Amino acid sequence: MNEYILRRKQTLLWSGVGLVLLVLLYILSPVLTPFMLGMALAYILVPGVNMLVALRLPRWLAVAIMFFLLVAVILGVLLIVIPLVRKEVGLAFEQLPGWVAQYNINLAPRLNHLFGVSAEIDILKIREVLQDAITGTDSLTTTIIAYAKSSGSAVIFFFVNLLITPVVLVYLLFDWDKFILSIREVIPRRFLNGTLSVFRDIDRLLSSFLRGQILVMLILAAYYSVGLSLAGFESAIPIGVLTGMLVFIPYLGVTFGLLLAILSALLQFDNYYGLISVAIVYGLGQILEGMVLTPKIMGERIGLHPLVIIFALFVFGQIFGFFGVLMALPISAALSVLIRRVYGQYRRSDFYKT
């Protein structure tokens, strides 16, 4: 009986500690975001650092190589995204008067007939708004200044986080083994073997997930680039590469690439050929990803229901912002290991059986 009471008290104690940690995690999420981002990047880059160290390179040089490789990848993506978006948006502004005229001629009268309301769009008003956005007016300038004053601290905090993240990353890459050892030393000895077993399962799951995700991204980048090129899109390669690289953000990545492809189709083609081509390329791409690549390459290792993934995107996005959206899937996968372990213990417990 005494042992039962002791275990019950320990369970209540650790449950309380876990609840307090969750509350602190939520409260301190803006502060913890750069540290968690640095830790996530360090987890991805540490195998490369260890491989270079095994090749007799000094650790500082291995860390420098992996860090600058990461910076090169990020800059490469930005060099694809920013010019592409600027080009498509600029062309869209040029084509906007023609689109509005076609709408007012073909669609607005039908809407007026069906609903009895005036649905015409005033192109002059749109031009005034665009002119305000481009050249600026007193009211617009006042609004921007007021917004900058109200959100200045948020902007400063964003750039501080941007500067802290690489510092955290470099320190973790240098001292990763010490960091892991310090965590191991904190674990109570009676729980050490079980905890390490859970960590090993999480590490295997995340490692296989990352390897599979990178391979899927490369295959889809090549597929979308080739598919859009065969359809005659001028921006096929940038849009295709961007769509493939953003696949690691569930649903959001392919949606952004699809919107860019639709915008490019509207700008380049005068008929429905472009939209039909986008529908075919992206429809087959989703079939390829969902029915071939993900099951064959990544398998059922994660085993998360689509509704769970969507819920995780909203939850982690709310807590950690854009970084939370990026890390929602791997963090949910890691948590699923813990949940399966706890559920297994529950099914084997006397509380469940009796």
Rank of each mutant, 00 (worst) to 15 (best):
M1C: 04
L6W: 12
T11Y: 12
L13E: 11
G18M: 09
L21K: 03
L22T: 06
V23L: 10
V23S: 05
V23M: 13
Y26W: 13
M36Y: 14
G38F: 09
M39H: 04
M39T: 13
V46M: 04
V49E: 03
N50I: 09
V53I: 12
L57H: 12
W60D: 11
W60Q: 09
W60L: 15
I65Q: 02
M66G: 00
F67Y: 15
V73A: 02
V73Q: 10
I74R: 05
I80P: 00
N104T: 10
N106S: 15
N106A: 15
P109C: 05
R110M: 15
L111C: 15
H113N: 13
L114E: 13
G116W: 05
G116F: 00
L124P: 07
L130V: 09
L130Q: 08
L130F: 10
A133M: 15
T135W: 13
A146F: 03
V155G: 11
V160H: 00
V160R: 06
V170L: 07
L172Q: 04
D177A: 08
I180H: 08
R184L: 06
I187Q: 01
R189Y: 08
R190W: 11
L192F: 11
N193E: 04
L205T: 09
L210E: 07
G212I: 00
Q213F: 11
Q213C: 07
I239H: 08
G240T: 01
V241P: 04
V247R: 09
V247W: 01
I249R: 01
G257F: 00
L260H: 02
S264P: 03
S264N: 12
A265Y: 03
A265V: 07
D270Q: 14
N271I: 00
Y273N: 07
Y273E: 12
I276P: 05
I287W: 13
L288N: 03
E289C: 02
L293F: 01
P295L: 01
K296I: 06
G299V: 05
E300K: 06
I310R: 01
L313M: 07
V315A: 07
V315R: 01
F316A: 04
F323H: 06
L326E: 01
M327E: 11
L335R: 08
G344T: 08
G344V: 00
Y346S: 14
S349V: 06
S349G: 10
D350G: 14
Y352W: 13
